[in-house]
Design a protein around this nucleic acid. Structure first.
Lengths: 343, 343
DNA sequence: TCTCGCCCCGTTAGCGCTAACATCGGCCTT
DNA sequence: AAGGCCGATGTTAGCGCTAACGGGGCGAGA
């Protein structure tokens, strides 16, 4: 029989009691040192710290979570294709969460359908995350989310107001206005818009800004062509626009579609920007090397990620008074794909 | 004073005891039902399940982790730019982990330096993850990783053999061989290679395959131009290659650099594929809409993600006998950027 | 008819922490 | 010089599970 007072099985991970024994104090004092609480004599603190180092002790997060009744982790759902924007935002969020001392538990999914999303939220709820973040521009996702009561704050990237959840976004409206005004400022009057999918809130905001801005300048409006963000749909839109000899400029909903559109124009001999100007949105790393180099709007996805975490922190502090964060305005990056008409 | 036998504070989350009381059984029986253990009468099981549903009870992961001494979560480190490949692999891994009943805790970082990586590993170790996965093609990352003893299996995406950790990869060598042979099969003899950065294992493998294949066919070799995966470096490489009037084909290390190179060629009036063929690597969603549409090698990043999880599972089962998984061969996608010389 | 054995289920101990309270000297009041 | 107060520790009681036994019925074999 082993001596009950003998040191714990050295094979096992050391516990607070092992540290306490080695430092000649009670486990509670160890806990105090660990949590940096007052009421520990400097010399004692030193001894404890030494023992911790000697044993290579680290506190068990499970035990801590149990005693504190807080998991210290927050759930992240990234739905949809792993595009540049969402991925960057997720990265920024990840780093911000780490800096705030939180762990992030990820539940990603390729497609955003109500069932999968609901399940993801539940999985995270089972994990007792303290908040749930959704990165996905689709309206459907946000809608599903707020129909669920997860019992924790919900923070979503959403360009449109949605009751029941905290909202973070880049200012799509302002960005799209900048894009449209850039074109108008260049002297274009026959401007068309290739919009993102109807289900995208970002697409809707960009489209709204386009419509408003055109109207403000008394310019004629054509029904936007609707794409799905992918190059192929931009290509299709480009072919459609080829029929339209009046158009001198196109505001495309994102850079990927711009790429497709550029390809369609080139194939048809329609020169950019001499015959028609093209402006995109996002400024993905590839844009500068499109032919011609794409004028576009740069979005601060990284900042968005940080905003998300800041909002989570606010909501955790006081659910009801956490402000939405939607003020970051995209930056116009002028390259070669836009010019004055007939220039 | 409250009756000590009264139901638990309804405000709090229900526990196993609440369920037990409601079902008129002991908490252990509830545990048995929860864990699907034998030895519970069907009628009892039903009653317990009903109580669980009524109370909307879900077991506390912290308590479970504590009692089982297993966190049920695995750590994922995604280092470097959130490019299409790594992001897709991470997504695939995420889904596979979920299907295997594991939670994934993410610790991502924008740049891969030894310090940050080491810290990330430690953070995950503190969280008591059961395994750590690294997605990052850089040799440095893998090296740092295996210098650390996290006390749990380490699985890394790595194209080169590295002792002390489990390895998963897509077969870069085979893919690059396919690329080179495609060019040679078309009749090209003056083929150049734009390689990825020296620190990238994938780049090294692709380069090695290129060199081997050229040698096997008795073709002359030029020192590859080294880029950094980004379009800008492809553009620079393109300008360099412009000087070289002999070249009729270029095997570019990835699609993004191909884009830059294509832009450089176009600007200089060098026609692709009439004057020179270009083949890329990865098949990012944009490649089909480059001008001309890019011939490239499609990689199954999703499968890679699943392979990672499969390897984790193997390693968890038996650390020493887990096989590496490196057999997936990229698929040649022929589009418009390659043709026979002088065709 | 007695007993062994099995099926069900309950009881008792932890798992490794934190929170709340108890304790114990010593120094400052009055 | 006695009371008291405070800083520095220790003690005790959970947190909500799982693991390891313990034990009561009941049918089957002797």
């Amino acid at each position: 029989m082993a001596d009950p007072d003998a040191p714990t099985d050295p094979a096992g991970v050391p516990t607070m009691f092992d540290v306490a024994r080695r430092a000649g104090v009670s486990h509670q004092t160890v806990s105090r040192v660990l949590n940096d609480l007052a009421g520990v004599a400097p010399s004692t603190r030193l001894r404890v710290e030494q023992a911790i180092a000697d044993l290579n002790y680290t506190p068990s997060p499970a035990a801590r979570a149990m005693a504190k009744r807080r998991s210290g982790s927050i759930g992240l759902i990234q739905a949809g294709r792993p595009d540049y924007g969402p991925s960057s935002a997720a990265l920024g969020f990840n780093e911000a969460a780490r800096d705030a001392g939180y762990t992030v538990s990820q539940a990603s999914m390729r497609t955003l359908d109500a069932d999968t999303l609901t399940q993801a939220v539940h999985r995270l709820a089972l994990q007792r995350v303290e908040a749930i973040v959704l990165i996905s521009g689709e309206r459907e996702g946000v809608r599903v989310l707020h129909g669920i009561d997860a019992g924790v704050p919900l923070v979503a990237v959403a360009s449109e107001h949605e009751p029941g959840l905290h909202r973070v976004a880049l200012d799509q409206y302002a960005g799209a206005r900048l894009a449209t005004e850039h074109l108008i400022g260049l002297g274009h009057r026959e401007i068309r818009h290739v919009a993102g999918p109807d289900d995208s809130m970002d697409a809707a905001e960009r489209r709204r800004a386009f419509v408003d801005t055109m109207a403000e300048h008394g310019l004629g409006l054509h029904e936007p062509i609707v794409g799905d963000w992918l190059p192929a749909s931009g290509h299709a839109a480009g072919r459609l626009l080829l029929e339209d000899r009046a158009v001198t400029a196109v505001f495309v909903g994102n850079d990927q579609m711009s790429l497709g559109l550029l390809a369609a124009f080139r194939r048809a001999g329609r020169r950019v920007p001499q015959d028609v100007s093209v402006i995109g949105f996002d400024d993905i790393p590839e844009s500068a090397y499109f032919v011609p180099a794409l004028t576009t709007l740069r979005q601060d996805f990284d900042g968005l990620g940080r905003d998300i975490m800041a909002t989570v922190l606010d909501a955790l502090r006081d659910e009801r008074s956490a402000p939405d964060r939607t003020a970051r305005v995209p930056e116009l990056i002028v390259r070669e794909s836009t010019a004055s008409p007939g220039a």
